[in-house]
């Protein structure tokens, strides 16, 4: 799988570290946002950090059944 970092270009997914559902970070730290997940089979917005590159946090929309990357932007922007 490749992830196209807006700063560094298309890179192997091994350069990135995965956090999970982007909704978590947007939540208020309550029970539901920490522990419950939609866990869809299909499009999923998730947070990846380019740890072996520019270290930016990215919000990647990815299909969890096919691993097709649908969109990528810098997280929180």
């Amino acid at each position: 799988m490749r992830i196209t970092c807006p700063h560094c270009g298309a890179r192997d997914s091994r350069e990135f570290s995965y956090l999970g559902d982007a909704k978590m970070a947007a939540g208020k730290g309550d029970f539901a946002s920490v522990y419950l997940r939609d866990n869809p089979a299909g499009a999923h917005s998730e947070l990846w950090q380019h740890v072996m590159g520019c270290r930016a946090w990215l919000e990647v929309e990815r299909n969890t059944s096919t691993h097709e990357v649908l969109s990528i932007r810098e997280a929180g922007k």
Binding site: A32, L36, R37, N39, P40, A41, T64
Partner: peptide
């Protein structure tokens, strides 16, 4: 692995990721 989909049919959200 399909727990979230099937529980979702009953309107539940689970503390599970696949």
């Amino acid at each position: 692995g399909r727990s979230s989909q099937v529980a979702g049919m009953a309107g539940m959200r689970l503390p599970i990721e696949s």
